[in-house]
Design a binder for these strands. Sequence first.
DNA 1: TGCCCTGGCGCC
DNA 2: AAAGGGCGCCAGGGCA
Length: 568
Amino acid sequence: MSRVDIVVAEQEKQSSDGDPLYELRAVARAAQESERATAPPHDLTAHDLAARIAEHDTGNTTWVLPSTDRIYPRLLRHGMRLRRCHDVALAERLLLNSQGRHDEPHGLAAAYARARGLPPPSDAEDDTADATGQAALFAPRGTGLPDDVTPAEATEIVLAEQHSAIQRAPAPERLRLLIASESQSALAAAEMSQHGLPWRADIHDAVLTTLLGRRVANGRPSTLADLADRISEAFGTPVNPDHPPSVVRAFRRAGIDVPSSRAHVLRDVDHPAVVPLLEYKELARLHSAHGWSWLREWVHDGRFRAAYVVGGVVSGRWATRGGGALQIPKVLRTCVRADPGWRLVVADAAQLEPRVLAALSGDRRLADVSASSDLYASIAADAFGGERGRAKIAMLSALYGGTSGEAGPLLARLRTRFPDAVHYVEHAAAAGERGELVRSRLGRTSPPPSEQWRALTGNADAGVAAHRASREWGRFTRNFVVQASAADYTSVLLALLRRALAHHAPDAELVFFQHDELIVHCPAEDAEAVAGLFQSCADEAGTLTFGARCPVRFPLEATLVDCYADAK
DNA sequence: TGCCCTGGCGCC
DNA sequence: AAAGGGCGCCAGGGCA
């Protein structure tokens, strides 16, 4: 059966209940000309749209959305689901980035203007939406499109432009896969926000009370307050532990010079204030970042609903808008509990980045040791006399560009055993040091360095500063090729897993995703089946991303638990 | 008062 | 043990 593209766009007009009206547009292709003979439907209410979607959402339909992040949460609230989409804004950004045009606007109005050869307007400030899809703060400010074109018409025109831009790209097949998987990831992100992560507020409250002490209105909880008192006593003078300069000054008065009040600096300091300070820092962090006010703001009806941002980070990792969903402290994982009769299936891709490096570089020996599910242990056995810790430092230094401590010699050792892998990242670092762009496996592209950077590194007199700036950018591009390719892989994985779940376990809900870790919440009787899907999706993601002959294994072990804290 | 910066630290 | 890359968020403080 032939593929069908159908644009779904919100019109500026609203229905009487304040929801937007929708317009559908079957995209012109030879096979679809007959469908185009009838006027495209517009002024559809959400109810009308749901009927159309139910009718047309076969596996062959790609819904073309100006921006998933903007439209899909509302569709979900009306009970609609899309199997597959093309996100025009995400595609525009990936295409612009691939040409090093990272700062140009990527919204529909800008993309349309570009397609028409006009100067693109900047993206509307209010084109962000919160977790539930409500445009934040402001009333809709219009589409930014000219009056003679509807959003759906503009979307269709931009889509055609994007298809030909993909065709012209250096590796069209890869970019096509990237744009497709990012689009499905955007659907998954909106669905995750809608499902929410099961979160027990009562357990959270109990953890906070245990660790921080009794809650005090407008003040530090009792344990934190006691620690603050002990810190001041130890210094013999009042010190605000929340204010780093005052801590540094207090140490100086005690005859100890510290460069900062960071925890790892203080750990080496011999002074009675250090112990309560370190304890205070850790607890104060919990209190301010994930304390009672976080709980009140972000957890409702037993769910933590994060707003995920797909495509907001150049490396392709997801970000979140509010709620800090990607920084949930380990101590609070105990709050994540399956509903009665349901289970959590938790999976994480073990040592994803080293495996991605093996796949990218084609390093034969690294691919061989990737057969092990504990990659660092096998690298250690192969090259570091069994010392896992050293193997890990060496590998992280390769990935991040670390040089301090024993990293240098360990990296040299790694290079002798895995020359292709180490060469791959060093090549990327060298490109960055010269100010060149680097790309991920599927075509995510690093941003060009700033003008300021070029001026500095191009200045022969800048000496040390120029050298440092150059090396810093090299560390960024070194890491970029791996981090962004890992994001390529997880994007494909997420798209595959979402599709597999819809097919094999339709009641299961993806509820969390964090770089290389996934949580599915599902009825207990589905849990085994869900767990069984993970590894096959992981294998297929490896094949799609890195090619059928890629020998690297990507273990994605699933754990069935009632409580997130019990996983791994 | 709000805005922006810094220091610091949580997660990967 | 930290280090190196990425991010978001908070408290404090300077400034308008």
